[in-house]
Amino acid sequence: MPDINIIREHFPNNIIEAGKLDASFNIIEVLSFLKNCPELSFDMLLSIIAIDYIHYNELIYCLLSTHLNESIKVSVKMKNEAKSVTAIYKSAYFDECEIYDLFGIKFTGNPNLKRLLLPQSWAGHPLKKDYILNDERLKWNE
């Protein structure tokens, strides 16, 4: 993890634990700072990881600084609605569509949120812990 002190100075209220920077309440500010700060310049979003903890969901943004060759993880904990970061990283669009498809997390601010992998008329979000496939239309497949 790179120069933690710069991040600590700017965001004293955010907790850094287990190698992750928790940004549940100010994700947009944190990501735009990490991208635009000249000493850090995390200019690449590698991936967004979603985890279903039954009572809440967690998103982990993996960022890479191509100048410093350093990476950082930023985490967000929320229920079912998250803020879209497509305005900061354009490549987040497909990640957000995939997470919406498989976890059902709605991203407010995403320009065109739709299913990426499954058919558009699919019922439910398969990677959720409480998902059961009981679609009447697919009875022929049993």
């Binding site: 058919p119 008329s121 699919w122 239309r137 697919l138 022929w140």
Partner: peptide, 12 residues
């Protein structure tokens, strides 16, 4: 063939 495409998936 007993199936038909509807809403992007095959249905009876």
């Amino acid at each position: 063939v007993k199936l038909k495409e509807k809403d992007g998936i095959l249905q009876e």
